[in-house]
Design a protein around this nucleic acid. Structure first.
Lengths: 239, 239
DNA sequence: CAACAATTTAACTCGTTGGATAAATACTAC
DNA sequence: GTAGTATTTATCCAACGAGTTAAATTGTTG
């Protein structure tokens, strides 16, 4: 992508090739899992000879770990750009939820990769020095937001930031990651625009209710804040 | 298991064989996913000749679907035994959450199977007439519990039962299903007894807070109800 | 342009894997 | 017992799939 605009006389493009391979691998691994992924298919989709995978990245497992690390890097980078500090605590939580929700919608491969890695009992992640040093900045960010909310009287309880983070991720992740089976079970399309909007509103209501003590749904009528609207717009335009 | 006590002269045991095959297949599919599962390994672990799989169940996909259907049947059967109607609404919700949580802990293969089937975009589930007719009794149960809670003044809002059901499942499922990667990311063991207890308390607090308008955590100090204690006991003894 | 290094291709290896064939064995009914 | 059926075993195989070998091509450097 980046190097496509090089002088035409270049017949070779190592970096571009590598990127194409990784992009194809990401699709393949998220579509079929680690065991189901086919090296030949990755090569074909990258428009590369199979030997190139081994030359530029390594074997199948190296390929997989590189993709996984890239996926974590990507979400962490976006997380870092969220500045929740200067927002009202309830608004910060709403922005955080909207971001998480929309990130998962924009990056469905991320969900699949995480599931695959958990099937592997995080064996590869454990070996990755790169990922282990990438602590989520969210936890400390959330802690300060919660503390500030409690100090200001917005929130009634100083919820454990890790639990809160996991809960927010859970409420978004599970719905999207399991939408296929859930849609069959409930006999309705959970991925329609209306269903997704409804879900986001539900999640925001649920979490804010627990924090503020205001019953869930009381927030849903409130008009959208500027920040939340921005996050929503980002989500739809970037797809 | 059931037929082991047959007369020793029996050299054959079709039903027992079939059950052993399905049990082995369940382990295999939940450990390795559909693509990663090995038919030979299933046969070996079932103590069966490979040909028996095809004779008694069918090919790999048939095997997988049968296991998946069995898993759904199993949870639905346990769900049906929960009678939440005669409990106080808040207590009913707590029992429901405890059951869900403990079921997932007792049946980790179920989580893996669901993830695998979602990677497959529910392709097999869609073709299963059996599963599609097995609606979770929870949705209607939750609806009546919520309505009763609202009528009695326990709950502040009439939350959509499907959203509530998905949220409860999500808060339990995600934590357990992704505990491997989350443990690496957060650098702590999320499956220790203390961590699990803490998580369950958090989930109960979160959901009840949203329903009642009482801030999360207010319930956590309350002594355990008899029903909830029973559900908890069931969970630990059955493991 | 010659020597050298980086990159890419084609063809091949070889263990694995889902599934099939056919024969043997165990049980049932008569 | 014997004929017939259900269950089980032993063996095979063609396709596949990850990874390798070796040669070719393209670029760089002096």
């Amino acid at each position: 992508m980046a190097k496509t605009s090089r002088p035409a006389k270049w017949q070779r493009d190592p970096e571009g090739m590598r990127l194409r391979i990784l992009a194809a691998a990401k699709r393949e691994f998220s579509d079929y899992g680690l065991a189901g992924a086919r090296v030949d298919r990755i090569a074909a989709e990258a428009g590369a000879n199979k030997r190139m995978l081994y030359y530029h990245v390594g074997n199948k497992e190296d390929l997989y770990l590189t993709v996984l690390e890239g996926a974590y890097e990507h979400i962490r980078a976006e997380e870092r750009e969220l500045n929740l500090e200067h927002l009202d605590p309830p608004e910060a939580i709403e922005v955080l939820i909207s971001f998480t929700w929309n990130y998962f919608i924009r990056n469905p491969e991320f969900l699949a990769l995480l599931n695959t890695e958990n099937l592997e009992r995080a064996a590869h992640l454990k070996r990755s020095t790169k990922v282990k040093s990438m602590h989520s900045p969210f936890v400390e960010m959330i802690r300060t937001v919660v503390d500030r909310g409690v100090a200001r009287g917005d929130f009634q309880v100083a919820m454990d930031p890790v639990q809160l983070y996991i809960s927010i991720a859970a409420l978004c992740f599970f719905y999207l990651s399991n939408s296929a089976t859930l849609s069959v079970i409930f006999g309705r399309n959970l991925l329609s625009t209306e269903a997704k909007d409804e879900r986001l509103a539900h999640v925001v209501g649920l979490v804010l209710a627990a924090l503020t003590g205001t019953p869930a749904g009381a927030q849903s009528g409130k008009k959208k804040t500027a920040k939340a609207a921005k996050a929503r717009a980002l989500a739809t335009t970037t797809v």
